[in-house]
């Protein structure tokens, strides 16, 4: 995210990190979570679940900010996110810290 100036509380605000949990067998493939994830963490997978739907999959590991919008909008209670404890260094060098210009 790009800021035109550095926010005054930049050093205090920590953007949370979330871990997305997908209950693939509950998914009916509506795609709401993929469409409305503000960080584009999700994509529809090519795979089928047992009912023949394509559940979502995480494509941007580490970018989830635990906003829980996927959890709120999912009509089938098939996805939720869990806040991760604050991590200093990102796995795979993923850029999930605000202000890094991504």
């Amino acid at each position: 995210m790009k800021y035109w100036r550095k926010p005054l509380d930049f050093d205090e605000v920590k953007i949370p990190h979330g871990e997305v949990h997908i209950i693939a067998e509950r998914c009916k493939g509506c795609g709401f979570c993929v469409e409305y994830c503000p960080k584009d963490v999700l994509e529809m997978s090519e795979e089928f679940n047992r009912k023949g739907y394509h559940p979502p999959k995480v494509v941007k590991e580490g970018e989830c900010v635990n906003c829980s919008l996927c959890e709120m909008i999912c009509p089938d209670f098939a996805i939720y996110s869990v806040e991760l404890p604050d991590v200093k260094t990102e796995p795979d060098g993923a850029q999930a810290v605000a202000g890094d210009g991504s």
Binding site: E19, H21, I23, E25, K57, E61, C64, L84
Partner: peptide, 11 residues
């Protein structure tokens, strides 16, 4: 991190 859960009931 993400978790795709197979154990539907538990999840």
């Amino acid at each position: 991190m993400s978790v795709t859960i197979e154990e539907v009931e538990a999840a």
